[in-house]
Amino acid sequence: MEYIIIIISAVFVNNILLSQFLGICPFLGVSNKVNTAVGMSGAVCFVIGVSTFFTYLLNKYLLVPLGIEFMQTVAFIVVIAALVQMVEIILKKISPSLYQALGIYLPLITTNCAVLGVALIVVTKEFSFGGEPHMMNLAESMVYAVSTALGYGLAMILFAGMREQLELSDVPESFKGIPIALVTAGILATAFMGFSGLV
């Protein structure tokens, strides 16, 4: 039951893009087409999942015992940069077609704030999913990270679909490009506000 609450909360209620504003740059940058949005969300989901696993362990078994939690930001970003590089090399070997499809978006994931954001949230914030507030354990952290990433993908793909329609419509000159995309995102965020209070 607790896991279901975590999933609903991370995907819909506290959607990382539309209510926490993490990872907006690729959200606006690569969401012109549904295809690229799907590829980008897939890559981000994977990196968020794997990096959260490693940063959680790093924090628990190295930084906390040594009493150097202030190194979290530096240590996590190094882990994430290394992981993204590793994912790139592995993908190139085992699935060149997927590697081709993701192209430039892969290295850019290092500077996606959603990745570092989730890694920091799971080790610093207390959650109370229907119970006492507590720090998340590894299983809860992983469920939280993966469902947050799914929420990211959901918002990104919905938004890309809307932007494809937008290209066909008659937009006032000054609103062309980013401003109208932002207004659209605002309306999408309003729709997601409807989920608040669900859990």
């Binding site: 539309l18 504003f21 000054s174 401003p179 932002l182 207004v183 605002g186 965020a189 309003t190 506000m193």
Partner: peptide, 22 residues
Amino acid sequence: LIFVLAPGAFIALAYIMVLFNK
């Protein structure tokens, strides 16, 4: 209230951007 909540951020930034470009 909506302007301090999430949707207001997107919409306010869009309009500021439009005015700035003008």
